[in-house]
Write a protein that binds this DNA or RNA. Structure first.
Length: 426
RNA sequence: GGUGAGGUGGCUGAGUGGUCGAAAGCAGCGCUUUGCUAAAGCGCCGUACCCCAAAAGGGUACCGAGGGUUCGAAUCCCUCCCUCACCGCCA
């Protein structure tokens, strides 16, 4: 959520920044300002009337205790009360409209964000390692998975419909090995505190991390309970300290959480549907930071590096791209995507998206800290996958495949998986 | 799911219709005294929003949330949320 005062003071600046995203959200700014003026006008009048009522009511109390008549005063206050009721409704309506609108206006891209229209304009920031070479035609993960019985999509569909995965045997074990490996790495070497949060969250939390109200059609909700299946651990973990005022020395807070993620993927039917690349439920290890505003961009770099470390230790080739203004997510000011190489798809797969939301989420969830002057200020929030599982899983088996159909696993997984290879007969 | 008790400022806790944004204590900040520490004394010490070009200053709201009664609500009524205790059910 943008700071209404910033919008008020520098509307042209705000409009220009938002316009870089494309779309017509900049138009909403004028509407917002109109509502804001209306709201403040009603509020000011309301406050004057409230003051008057307060004064007169005290006067009534005084007169009554002295045994004097207060009839004419009571009539006046009653009339003021009616007016207060009317104006109050007006003020509340404006307030609601303002908030609703504010919740649907995206964050301002960072001043240095690369300009661009869509994903094709995203610059590559760096890459690591090299594409593996095969002296045989490599299979994609779907073929490998079914040959080695690592997952069973047909039977998963029987249980839950298309777009669900059922890992089996060595596949289930490999998934678990990857999760354990990543959690250990981030807790032991990168200093994150592990969180195992609820997967069902309240509406307010979904608003806090910007999934709602705009993206409600993409979310799984439980109508009667007004709860939602978290589409990412970002939701429960970032909201962990919502409506709190943290002590400055306690920042940054660094959390890592492994959770399943639930997404309707409405409207993406037919895209990337082969195998386990795009599904309704997947596992993910997520990194979340709550920082002071001054150093959130440093923390953003290190968070991204922490996520990259996973791929480096697994020996998987990847590249990091920065999202251009046109491709940036709704709440993000700056985002790096990490993409691992998939020989089977002959393409890079997004396995992590590391974003700095600045105070955009914090303002929505009233997440603050007390600075050295004793003033309450909004924190900055960041998150990034560290990493998303099905795609990482796909890259691991595709890159490790051998001519005989077996898969050689990265050495670092040996203590977690208990074997160096996955063979057909296993 | 049932019954009961509760939700007041950073914390403890008083307040059952009017002058209560809220006693008191603790914690915190500042000053005085002091060789230093300790102790004591005095003062300050919530949040949000609005008015004002800004500062100074002024105002309004907020006692879990929302509605209602009333001239006036922390206080009375209703609904909901949450916490605690016991009972039932269940992995």
């Amino acid at each position: 959520m943008l700071d209404i005062r910033l919008v008020r003071d520098q509307p042209d600046f705000v409009k220009a920044r938002i316009a870089t995203r494309g779309g017509d959200d900049a138009r909403k700014i004028d509407e917002l300002l109109a509502i804001d003026a209306e709201r403040r006008k009603a509020e000011t009048q309301l406050q004057q009337l409230n003051g008057e009522r307060k004064r007169l009511s005290k006067e009534i109390g005084g007169r009554r205790s002295r045994g004097e008549s207060s009839d004419e005063l009571e009539a006046r206050v009653r009339a003021i009360g009616d007016e207060i009721g009317r104006l109050g409704d007006e003020a509340t309506a404006s307030e609601t409209r303002q908030r609703d609108l504010l919740l649907r206006i995206p964050n301002l891209p960072h001043a240095d964000a690369p300009m661009g229209k869509d994903a094709s304009d995203n610059p590559v920031v760096r890459s690591w390692g090299e594409k593996p070479h095969f002296d045989f035609p490599p299979l994609d993960h779907a073929a490998l998975g079914s040959k080695l019985k690592l997952f069973d999509l047909e039977r998963a569909a029987k249980l839950s419909g298309s777009g669900f995965i059922c890992f089996t045997g060595a596949g289930a074990k490999l998934e678990r090995a990857l999760i354990y490996f990543m959690l250990d790495l981030h807790t032991r070497e990168h200093g994150y505190t592990e969180i195992s949060p609820p997967f069902l969250v309240r509406r307010d939390c979904m608003i806090g991390t910007t999934q709602l109200p705009k993206f409600e059609p993409d979310m799984y909700g439980l109508e009667e309970n007004q709860m939602f299946l978290a589409p990412t651990a970002e939701v429960p973990v970032t909201n962990f300290h919502r409506e709190e005022i943290l002590a400055a020395p306690d920042l940054p807070k660094k959390f890592v959480a492994y959770t399943p993620c639930f997404r309707r993927e409405a409207g993406s039917a037919g895209r990337e549907t082969r195998g386990i690349i795009r599904v309704h439920q997947f596992d993910k290890v997520e990194l979340v930071k709550i920082t002071r505003p001054e150093n959130s961009y440093e923390e953003h770099e290190s968070l991204t590096a922490n996520a990259e470390r996973v791929l480096q230790l697994l020996g998987l080739h990847y590249r990091v791209i920065e999202l251009c203004t046109g491709d940036l997510g709704f709440g993000s000011a700056k985002t790096y995507d990490i993409e691992v190489w998939s020989p089977g798809q002959n393409a890079y797969l997004e396995v992590s998206s590391c974003s700095n939301f600045e105070d955009f989420q914090a303002r929505r969830m009233e997440l603050r800290f007390k600075d050295a002057d004793g003033k309450n200020r909004f924190c900055h929030t960041l998150n990034g996958s560290g990493l998303a599982l099905p795609r990482l899983f796909a890259a691991v088996i595709e890159c490790g495949q051998q001519r005989d159909g077996s898969v050689r696993l990265p050495e670092i997984l040996l203590p977690y998986f208990g074997a160096a290879e996955i063979r057909r007969d296993a």
